[in-house]
Design a binder for these strands. Structure first.
Length: 953
DNA sequence: CCGATCACG
DNA sequence: GACGTACGTGATCGGA
C-alpha cells in the first residue's frame, strides 16, 4: 500500500461511491437460455446448452461489472408459500423438459466453478430472495442490478434498483416496464393483479388484459381504489367483472407481490465478489468440453500471471489465439475486428472482398447531413464477425479551446492513417466493381458521401430498404432496431462512442479503438442483417417491389438531394421583416382585447384568456384537461363576431410562416452550394411514400395567399426555369380502378368534372348550373372515400350535423355500392394478413387491425382502406422518377429533378428546353404503370413553368 | 420530451 | 353498442 493512500488528505476525500450489488436470477436464466440456445450435448450425451449459456453469461458479467457484491439466486422445490394462498399457483406448468433436468445441478456447479456466491431457500422463489436482498442493499445505500428479464421482478425497479436482460445484454428500466405494462414499476403489481398471468396461473380478473389493466390503474391509482370505486366504470361488462372478482384480484395481488422480508440467514455483505479461480474453473470447463470458453479463460489467466509489469502483446500468437476463440463464439463483439492503418492491409481487405463477391460497406463522417459531412473513415465486412475499419480523417483528442501550437498537435490529423487520397484510390475500384455487391444500411447516405469523392457505388443492396419492403408500417428500419429484432444483438450506439448533448464530439475526435469497435460492428451487423433479410424477402416474394421500385430509386433521390433547390434569400428576408412588423401590431391588438399581456403562442394561456376571462362559449378538451384552441375552434368563435380569436388566427398564421419557413429556410441554405438540400427518407412511412426532412420541402405553403409568397422564394438559376408536373386526382382515379366503379371509371375516361358528376349522381341535381355548395359537398365525400370515410369526419369537414353526413354517405354508397364492397374486402384482407397490398405488390402493414379497443381498431381500418390508394400512388410516382433520368438523357435534355411532393415533381430546366422537357416528363408520368399494370382509368399529369415555384403551378 | 398546432399531399 | 375519428407526413413551440 502506498503512502499516499494513508495520507490524511485521502481520508477526507469525497464520500466513496455507493456499493454496487449484482443479484442474478439463476432459475429464470435457465429456462430462457434453454429455449433461446440451440441444443448442445457433451460427448457423453449430457445436454449442456443452458449450462454453456449460463457460464458465458456469468463470466462476462463478472468481468464487465464493477460490482462489489455478486450472488446467484435459485428457486428450490416447485411448491412454496404461494400455494397456500392459491393452490393452483403455477399448477398448470408442465414438468421441465427432460433435456433441462440434468442442467439444473450443472448450473449450480458452474456458479461454484466461477467462484460466485449462490443461495436458495426452501419455500421461497428466487424472486423473493432477490426482492429481499434488493431491499436490504438499497436500504444500506447500495446500487442494485438485478440480472434477469423476468417481468415479475420489474416491480422492484426504482432509483437504486435496475435490471439487466442477460440474453439481450440490454438494460431494463422504467421505460421498458412502461412499454410492457403501460405503467411505471411502482404500479406493476396492481396491473399484474388485474391482468393475471397465464404462465404462472395467476387468475387476475377475467376479461381484463394488460392494456385495460394499465388504463384502469392509471385512472384509479391502485387496485384497492379501483375496487372501491368499481361502480363508476362505464362499461357494464368490465364493471361487473371487477365487482364479481374483487377477491380474486386481491389474491392475485398477493401472488405477484414479491416477499421482500424473507428471513435470510446472511446479509448481502456475505456475497463479496471473488475473482475467478483457475483451479476451480478450468477443470469444470474441461469436463464439459466448453472449449471456446476455456481458450478465452486460459488467455485471461495467462495474461494475469504474466504480471502487471509486462506490456500486453497485441500481435503475433496472442492475436491469433484471440481470433480463434472469437470465431467460435457469438458472432459480434469479439476480437475479429481489425484496424487498417496501411495501404497493404487495405489492399488485402479489398482483395478478400473481391474474392467473396459481396462486402458490407459503411462510412463514418463528421455530420448526419451528408451534404455537410467529411469522410472520417470507412468499414468493410466480408463475413460474419470479420470486419475492419479504415480511419482516414481522425484527429487528436477533443479540442481544448486552447491555441494549437505544435503543427501535429491536438487538432491535427492522427499520424499513421492511410492518406485519404490513397485510401480512396484503393477502395474506388472495389465500390465500382460490377461483380462485387456492396451492402449498406441506408446506402443513400454512403453513396452521397462517396459521390463527393467521385466514386459511384454499384451494384448495391440496402438492408434498410429490404426491411422496408418486408415490414413497412410494422416497425422502424434503423440499424439498431433491426439488429435487436433480427440478430438479438444490441449494437454499440453512436452516443456511446461520441458522447451526448453538449459533450458530443464529431466522429473524427473519437479515439481509434472505440471507432473501430463501433464502425466495424456497423458493417458486420449490416452484413448479418443482409444474410437474414434477403432470403426472407425472396421467400416472401417481395423482391419485385424492392428490385423494381425502392432499390433503383436510391441514386435518383441521391441526385435530387445533391442538386438542391435555389432560394432567393432576399425574398425570404423581406417576408420575415414584413411578418415581424405585422406580428407586433397584432400582438398589441390582441393584448388590448384581452386587457393584459400574455403569450399568444401558448394554447394554455390563450384558452384561459378566452374561456375563463372573456367568458366565450366553448369547452375543455382532451386528456390534458386544457382548452382546445385549434383553428376550427377559433374560426367558430370568429364567425360569432369575436375579434380576439380572429386576430389570433392571423397571428398564428404569420407566426407559423415566419418561424417554420421564412426564418428557418434562410438558415438551411448550404454555404458551399448556396442551395437548400433536403433529405428524403425512403423507409419512413407506412404506405410507401417518401418523406422530407431537414428541411421538410414537402410542406411549403400554397393554400393561402400569404403562404404562396414563400413559394416565390423557390427559384431557378439564371437562364433556367422551374417546371412542375403533378398528377391530377391520382388517388381518386385509383379508387375508381381498384373498387371497379363503372360510372367513376367512365367519368375519368371522358375527362369530366368528377366532383360535379358525383354531386349530380348522389344528390340528383343537373351538372349544369350546379350550386357550388353542392359540388363542395361531393368533393368532400370523394376525399372522405380516400380516407376511409366516417360520418364524424365528413361532418367535421363540412361543418354539418353528423346525421346529415351519415345520410350523404348512405346516398353515396347506394349510388356506388362497389366502393363499399372494396372497403369491406380491404378490411377483411387486413384482418386476415396484418397488411394490405398496393397494385404493385407492396405490403403496408396495419398493426392493431385486430385491436380490442373499437376506436383504435376503426382507426386502423381506415388506415387499411387508405393505404392501397396512397401506396399505389406512391409506387407510380416512384416508377416515374426512376425513368425520368434516362428519358432526359435520351432526349439530350439537361433538366435536373429537384423535389417530389407525393403527386408532383419539380424540375429546374434550361429556359429553351422547358417545353420539350414538360412534354417528356408528362409522358413518362402518365405511362408510369406500364408495362407492369394497365389501369382502367387514364392517368393525367399537368405541367406548369415559371421562374418561381408559386407560378409554376 | 410530449402534446398541441399547423404546414403540405 | 362500445370507442372517439377523417389518411399520410415533419417542424416549431410551450410547458412540464
Amino acid at each position: 500500500m502506498s503512502a499516499a493512500k494513508t495520507s490524511p488528505a485521502d481520508e477526507k476525500a469525497p464520500a466513496k461511491k455507493p456499493d454496487h450489488v449484482f443479484l442474478i436470477d439463476g432459475s429464470g436464466y435457465i429456462f430462457r437460455a434453454f429455449h433461446a440456445l440451440p441444443p448442445l450435448t457433451r460427448p457423453d450425451g449430457t445436454p449442456v446448452n443452458a449450462v454453456l449459456g449460463f457460464t458465458n453469461m456469468l463470466l462476462k458479467l463478472v468481468s464487465d461489472t464493477d460490482a462489489e457484491y455478486i450472488a446467484v439466486l435459485f428457486d428450490t422445490a416447485r411448491k412454496n408459500y404461494r400455494n397456500d394462498i392459491f393452490p393452483d399457483y403455477k399448477a398448470h406448468r408442465p414438468p421441465p423438459p427432460p433435456e433441462l433436468i440434468p442442467q439444473f445441478a450443472l448450473i449450480r456447479e458452474a456458479t461454484k466453478a466461477c467462484n460466485v456466491p449462490q443461495l436458495e431457500m426452501e419455500g421461497f422463489e428466487a424472486d423473493d430472495l432477490i426482492a429481499t436482498y434488493a431491499r436490504q442493499a438499497a436500504e444500506a445505500g447500495a446500487q442494485v442490478t438485478i440480472v434477469s428479464s423476468d417481468k415479475d421482478l420489474m416491480q422492484l425497479i426504482g432509483p437504486q434498483v435496475s435490471m439487466l436482460d442477460p440474453i439481450k445484454n440490454r438494460p431494463i428500466g422504467p421505460a421498458e416496464v412502461e412499454e410492457k405494462f403501460g405503467v411505471g414499476p411502482d404500479k406493476v403489481v396492481e396491473v399484474q393483479a388485474l391482468a393475471g398471468d397465464s404462465s404462472d396461473n395467476v387468475p387476475g380478473v377475467p376479461g381484463i388484459g394488460v392494456k385495460t389493466a394499465a388504463e384502469l390503474i392509471k385512472t384509479y391509482g391502485s387496485l384497492e381504489e379501483l375496487l372501491a370505486r368499481a361502480g363508476e366504470i362505464k362499461q357494464p361488462k368490465r364493471r361487473e367483472a371487477l365487482q364479481q372478482n374483487a377477491e380474486l384480484a386481491r389474491i392475485s395481488r398477493r401472488l405477484v407481490l414479491l416477499k421482500n422480508d424473507v428471513p435470510v440467514k446472511q446479509p448481502f455483505t456475505a456475497f463479496a465478489r471473488r475473482e475467478p479461480d483457475a483451479a476451480l474453473l478450468i477443470p469444470f470447463l474441461e469436463e464439459n468440453q466448453f472449449r471456446s470458453v476455456l481458450a478465452r479463460v486460459q488467455g485471461q489467466f495467462a495474461k494475469k500471471s504474466a504480471g502487471d509489469a509486462a506490456v500486453a502483446d497485441g500481435s503475433g500468437k496472442g492475436h491469433a489465439a484471440a481470433k480463434q476463440a472469437a470465431a467460435s463464439a457469438k458472432p459480434t463483439g469479439e476480437a475479429a475486428y481489425e484496424l487498417v492503418m496501411t495501404e497493404a492491409e487495405l489492399a488485402r481487405w479489398v482483395a478478400a472482398a473481391r474474392e467473396k463477391g459481396a462486402v458490407a460497406f459503411d462510412t463514418e463522417t463528421t455530420s448526419i447531413d451528408p451534404m455537410q459531412a467529411s469522410l472520417v473513415g470507412f468499414s468493410l465486412a466480408i463475413e460474419t464477425g470479420r470486419a475492419c475499419y479504415v480511419p482516414v480523417g481522425h484527429r487528436g483528442g477533443p479540442p481544448q479551446g486552447q491555441l494549437d501550437l505544435g503543427g501535429d498537435g491536438e487538432g491535427g490529423l492522427l499520424p499513421n492513417q492511410i492518406p485519404l487520397a490513397k485510401a480512396l484510390a484503393l477502395i474506388k475500384p472495389l465500390l465500382e466493381d460490377p461483380s462485387v455487391l456492396k451492402i449498406g444500411q441506408n446506402i443513400k447516405y454512403d453513396m452521397t458521401i462517396m459521390a463527393a469523392h467521385d466514386i459511384a457505388i454499384a451494384p448495391y443492396d440496402d438492408t434498410m430498404l429490404i426491411s422496408y419492403v418486408l415490414a413497412g408500417g410494422a416497425h422502424g428500419h434503423g440499424m439498431d432496431e433491426l439488429s435487436e429484432l433480427h440478430l438479438n444483438h444490441r449494437t454499440i450506439h453512436y452516443e456511446e462512442v461520441a458522447g451526448t448533448g453538449k459533450a458530443q464530439v464529431t466522429f473524427d475526435r473519437v479515439p481509434l479503438d472505440k471507432a473501430l469497435a463501433y464502425a466495424a460492428e456497423d458493417a458486420d451487423v449490416t452484413l448479418r442483417l443482409h444474410q437474414v433479410l434477403k432470403p426472407q424477402m425472396l421467400a416472401e416474394r417481395l423482391a419485385t417491389v424492392y428490385e423494381t421500385i425502392d432499390r433503383p430509386l436510391v441514386p435518383v433521390v441521391m441526385a435530387m438531394e445533391r442538386a438542391g433547390v435555389r432560394l432567393d434569400r432576399k425574398v425570404l428576408q423581406d417576408l420575415s421583416a414584413d411578418f415581424a412588423a405585422r406580428l407586433i401590431e397584432l400582438e398589441k391588438q390582441i393584448h388590448k382585447l384581452a386587457g393584459h399581456e400574455f403569450n399568444i403562442g401558448s394554447p394554455k394561456q390563450l384558452g384561459e384568456v378566452m374561456f375563463d376571462e372573456m367568458g366565450l362559449g366553448g369547452g375543455k378538451k382532451g386528456k390534458t384537461g386544457a382548452y382546445a384552441t385549434g383553428a376550427d375552434v377559433l374560426e367558430e368563435l370568429a364567425a360569432q363576431g369575436h375579434d380576439l380569436p380572429a386576430r389570433v388566427l392571423d397571428w398564428r398564421q404569420l407566426s407559423k410562416l415566419k418561424s417554420t419557413y421564412t426564418d428557418s429556410l434562410q438558415e438551411q441554405i448550404n454555404a458551399r452550394t448556396g442551395r437548400v438540400h433536403t433529405s428524403f427518407a425512403l423507409a419512413a412511412t407506412s404506405t410507401g411514400r417518401l418523406s422530407s426532412t431537414d428541411p421538410n420541402l414537402q410542406n411549403i405553403p400554397i393554400r393561402t395567399e400569404e403562404g404562396r409568397k414563400i413559394r416565390r422564394a423557390f427559384v431557378a438559376e439564371k437562364g433556367w426555369v422551374l417546371l412542375s408536373v403533378d398528377y391530377s386526382q391520382i388517388e381518386l382515379r385509383l379508387a375508381a380502378h381498384m373498387a371497379e366503379v363503372p360510372q367513376l371509371k367512365e367519368a375519368f375516361r371522358e375527362g369530366i368534372d368528377i366532383h360535379a358528376m358525383t354531386a349530380s349522381q348522389v344528390f340528383g341535381v343537373p351538372v349544369k348550373g350546379m350550386d357550388p355548395m353542392v359540388r363542395r359537398r361531393a368533393k368532400a365525400i370523394n376525399f372522405g372515400i380516400i380516407y376511409g370515410i366516417s360520418a364524424f369526419g365528413l361532418a367535421a369537414q363540412l361543418g354539418i350535423p353528423q346525421g346529415e353526413a351519415r345520410a350523404y354517405i348512405d346516398a353515396y354508397f347506394k349510388r356506388y355500392p362497389e366502393i363499399l364492397g372494396y372497403m369491406d374486402r380491404t378490411k377483411k384482407f387486413a384482418r386476415d394478413h396484418g397488411y394490405v397490398l398496393t397494385l404493385f405488390g407492396r405490403r403496408c402493414h396495419v398493426p392493431g387491425i385486430l385491436d380490442k379497443n373499437p376506436a383504435r381498431r376503426s382507426f386502423m381500418e381506415r388506415a387499411a382502406i387508405n393505404a392501397p390508394l396512397q401506396g399505389t400512388a406512391a409506387d407510380i410516382i416512384k416508377r416515374a422518377m426512376i425513368r425520368v433520368p434516362a428519358a432526359l438523357a435520351d432526349a439530350k435534355l439537361q433538366a435536373r429533378m429537384l423535389l417530389q411532393v407525393h403527386d408532383e415533381l419539380l424540375f429546374e430546366v434550361p429556359k429553351a428546353e422547358a417545353k420539350d422537357t414538360a412534354a417528356l416528363v408528362k409522358k413518362v408520368m402518365e405511362r408510369a404503370c406500364a408495362p407492369a399494370l394497365e389501369l382502367d382509368v387514364p392517368l393525367v399529369a399537368e405541367t406548369g413553368t415559371a421562374d418561381n415555384w408559386a407560378d409554376a403551378h
